[in-house]
């Protein structure tokens, strides 16, 4: 087995120390704060949720899709896009997946609009 693999998951006394855990939590919070977008007009901040330009774009996309959904199916009550904002900063594979899903959704919408 590769030497590096044998080290994976090996924890130390230091890692279990409450001070280490408190410092790690603080570093994570600081990272989130740094990722806050300069312009928050699109996305009002939600406590404990991920922010940043990607989150704002994601939210904007959801808002647009919800508005279209309302137009096409009047009377229905889709969930607020704010509730769909992810709790964590999205990783590259998750963004790719979200964009694929959005593209599928847009295709379906296009189909519905052509029927309307």
């Amino acid at each position: 087995m590769a030497k590096k693999k044998q080290l994976a998951g090996k924890s130390t006394k230091l890692a279990k120390l409450p001070l280490t855990q408190a410092l790690a939590r603080r570093a994570e919070e600081q990272l989130r704060e740094r990722a806050l977008p300069a312009d928050t007009s699109i996305s009002p901040p939600h406590e404990g949720r991920a922010h940043g330009p990607l989150a704002a774009a994601y939210l904007y996309l959801l808002q647009e899709l919800t508005a279209l959904h309302r137009q096409l199916t009047p009377g229905s009550n889709p969930p607020s896009p704010h509730h769909s904002l992810p709790y964590h900063l999205l990783g590259a594979p998750e963004i790719k997946r979200a964009l694929t899903l959005a593209r599928q959704g847009l295709h379906e919408l296009q189909h519905l609009l052509s029927q309307a």
Partner: peptide
């Protein structure tokens, strides 16, 4: 490898 492991463990203490 050792450096990477130890520095990762010390990350909270940056």
């Amino acid at each position: 490898v050792t450096n990477e492991y130890i520095l990762e463990q010390l990350k909270p203490y940056q």
